[in-house]
């Protein structure tokens, strides 16, 4: 672990993230074996890259291509009256989610409100057989009765902290950064 400054700290580097993703994929594969009906849906924007990385690993484990979609949840947020309009991103799901096992994928699990919005957004697209939630980081402070099924790593944070997950195309540059709040 390296220190950027006293407020910002790299929690996981590229190697650590690769190990975490591998372990998540193993758990997902075991839980959903043989996985013929499994599709991954990344929540825009942080969950999309992670969904692709998980799908790649699952593909190797199951020996077939695992479909990946991306879901935008801005229209379903519960705080639209209290903030500037969030940037909307495309929802791009080229398969029918009905009767599938849909694994929602997000980078950070915090209040649970994003997941709630994602469940609503997903319901517009069909009726999955079941929905699971996979997150790279569970930072605590849930505000809703929602819990992830697959957690890469749980970490302790204060509510005002920032957890920044960077998963660029270049795996070398991947990292998870914790930024402590100012006080």
């Amino acid at each position: 672990m390296s220190t950027i400054n006293e407020k910002k700290r790299v929690l996981f580097d590229a190697t650590a993230i690769a190990n975490i993703v591998q372990r998540m994929a193993n758990e997902l594969a075991q839980e959903n074996h043989p996985g013929v009906d499994v599709v991954l849906v990344g929540i825009q924007t942080g969950g999309v890259q992670l969904a692709h990385r998980l799908a790649e690993q699952l593909g190797k484990l199951w020996g077939r291509t695992v479909p990946v979609g991306q879901l935008d949840i801005s229209m379903y947020r519960d705080d639209l009256d209290h903030r500037f309009a969030p940037k909307v991103h495309p929802t791009d799901i080229l398969f029918d989610v009905s009767d599938k096992t849909v694994v929602l994928v997000d980078d950070v699990f915090f209040s649970g409100r994003t997941t709630r919005a994602a469940l609503d957004a997903l319901a517009e697209l069909g009726r999955p057989k079941r929905v699971q939630l996979a997150v790279l980081i569970d930072r605590g402070h849930r505000e809703l009765p929602i819990r992830p099924d697959f957690v890469g790593q749980a970490i302790d944070t204060e509510p005002g902290d920032r957890v920044d997950v960077k998963l660029p195309d270049n795996p070398e540059e991947c990292k998870v950064v914790l930024e402590k709040s100012a006080e």
Binding site: D72, S74, M75, Y76, V88, T91, D120, E124, L125
Partner: peptide
């Protein structure tokens, strides 16, 4: 993005 939504079977969003 909204144009893509218009091409879906269910077009209403709760924003």
């Amino acid at each position: 993005v909204f144009k893509d939504i218009g091409a879906r079977p269910r077009k209403v969003m709760p924003a």
